[in-house]
Design a protein around this nucleic acid. Structure first.
Lengths: 211, 211, 211, 211
DNA sequence: GATGAATGAGCCTTCATTCAT
DNA sequence: GATGAATGAAGGCTCATTCAT
């Protein structure tokens, strides 16, 4: 699985060695800075942390938004990759939950991931949605496996699975520093995902919908 | 439901009629603008939408942050009030779920509520935390009733309840325009909240934790 | 000697009792505030300290500049008055020096007086220069007396006397908190003023010019 | 007289040619504008006079206060340098008085110098006080030489010397356009500085204190 | 006549982006 | 291809002054 960041556009000149290094370092640093300081962090700060002139940032990413997008894409790609790995290394019974835990435990990225996806939703660039599509395929596989194994309710589909993941990130972000509460909150989501039929019908909340 | 905008500070002189009108309008507009455009929206934009000079905004709220806080407090107060009403008008079996639905259905506020609580967590002003405390009491009552009625798992406490609400807002925000997925996602959370014992122990996701 | 602040313009309506009180209080407060905080102090701050609405300030003084000018005029008038008193109560040998000391010792006003005169120089309003003229007459009398008494060099005239006073204020302001240095600096000026002939000729600083 | 604008900080990279030009021009213009319009002059005005965008000002001086300080430091440094030159080129009998005349004759700087020292007193930044210290050493040398030569009263020390210089600037500023008065006023100060013993004792202004 | 809310011009500062070196 | 200086459009906030109560 190559971590090649060169955009796979045909005809794109291969970058010079230092240029490729700079681009990689920039993405690394940008992710760290945006995660730590929020999307509002200045491009200059990123350039400084990367030991690079400001103009170099703009040579690689013509716009701040483009940089944000590239960071997001990289995240999605990484997640997809880890998802694939889990699907391969773990049985279908556990893989989906393992993936959830993996995402939710990425403490520094928690917030960032949520924010990233949210922004992605707003700003659907082609590239982004391509990376999103790849992640979607992975999630499809994981979900399908779990449902076949009977550990996840059958009425679930991928869109809401993503949303649940995002929402749970937010939820845990909100419980930072309260591990007991976080543990219980995660249990709520986990149990909600488990195999049971429907309950989707009607707002009537009486009685348990998992038979 | 009083729409009384007078701040409940004891020694504060009652505002002049026009001033009170402006203050109210500003809060209204600010909530709308911040909700639509995010926290980064400019104070000038708010002033313009409120048909008011920029200085008027700063007369009422000495700082942009203060304005944000006031908007947030108003939201929390409104929610607390609606929670109280539900607790009074609805049986304990339904009240908590009704409150959830009520919050989650407030389409324009969805995003805003989440952001608000998040910001509140960061910026715990006295006023904010007071309003938050009031809401907390309401949630305590609702949760307690639901647990006594046996419709919500007994191991839940208020902190995670709030977080779950916030996270679910985010989740639905992410599913805007996909009503079917949203319905299913809500079902997941609802079922996760239902009465069952524990499941908090260990990461073992095999088998259902609701006996 | 009345401290009547009513402008002596013929045909001016006599102010209502409270209005006169407000005007007086405003001048008092304005002098204090401008002295303490500098000319940049806001009119609102002055209004607040005077327990008066902001509009009241502008009713009495149509402009911030007008208020500054009024404060300055009051200062000049007060100084002229004290100068007259000294001329009457003290012998010509001491009166001028006593006046100097009196001015220089007005600790809180030191700075203010200098600044005031400077601003006055820039902004020569009719009123200001009238008050300045009155003070000039007093100085003329004091200087004349001292020269006749032979305690001040004969080549001095009023313009430079004023300037020396202003400059000495500044000088002492700069030595605030260093009483020993201030004492010596005042001695320098005092000795420079004493009776001696000329020294005005040429820049040749060799030898003492006081024979 | 080096007009080297490079800050003498060790590890600071040498500025690019155009940057150095702009920095120098900015200092020049800022001194002129602040002198003419007072410290309240807007940074935009300075930028405009320097044919530079506003952001360029803030690139070179991160704060308006920093710009003011830089202007002040430059002044102090220039004065110290000229003082040193005078001490070297002129005999001790004349050097101090020559320095006084030099400062007092710098027409455009007159006011500025006073204001600068005053502000320096208020805002003792490290850099400022360093430049002030350098100037202090020069004054010490000049004063010492003059006292040894017997042309200045022995009881004078540097602090009051500075203050006298500042005050005299103010004095002359006040006599702008009245050269005859200015000449006489300068004579007063000069004679006050001349060799004589004490007179510091007591407020008794009778009789000449120079024996 | 007093009050204080409203106003808009202006100030300092930041930031994404372009240009000369 | 990299660098960092320059740019100007905002943004938050203040203040003298006007207007409605």
């Amino acid at each position: 699985m190559t971590t090649d960041q060169t955009p796979p556009v045909a005809g794109a000149k291969p970058l010079r060695a230092d240029a490729r290094r700079n681009r990689a370092r920039l993405l690394e640093v940008a992710e760290a800075v945006f995660t730590a300081r929020g999307t509002g962090a200045s491009t200059e700060e990123i350039a400084r942390h990367a030991n690079v002139g400001i103009a170099t940032v703009f040579r690689h990413f013509p716009t701040k938004e483009a940089l944000l997008e590239a960071v997001l894409v990289r995240r999605l790609e990484r997640l997809a990759e880890e998802g694939r790995r889990l699907a391969a290394e773990t049985g279908p019974t556990d893989a989906l939950f393992a993936f959830f835990d993996l995402v939710l435990d990425q403490s520094p990225v928690k917030n960032a991931f949520a924010a990233a996806l949210a922004d992605a939703g707003v700003d659907v660039r082609a590239a982004t949605s391509e990376a999103g599509r790849a992640l979607g395929q992975v999630l499809t596989a994981l979900l399908d496996g779990a449902q076949r194994a009977g550990v996840v309710r059958r009425d679930l589909e991928v869109p809401e699975l993503t949303a649940i993941l995002v929402g749970t990130c937010r939820m845990l972000e909100h419980l930072d520093g309260h591990p007991e509460s976080a543990k219980r909150a995660r249990a709520v989501v986990r149990d909600g995902l488990r195999a049971c039929t429907g309950s989707v019908e009607g707002p009537s909340p009486h009685g348990h919908s998992c038979p």
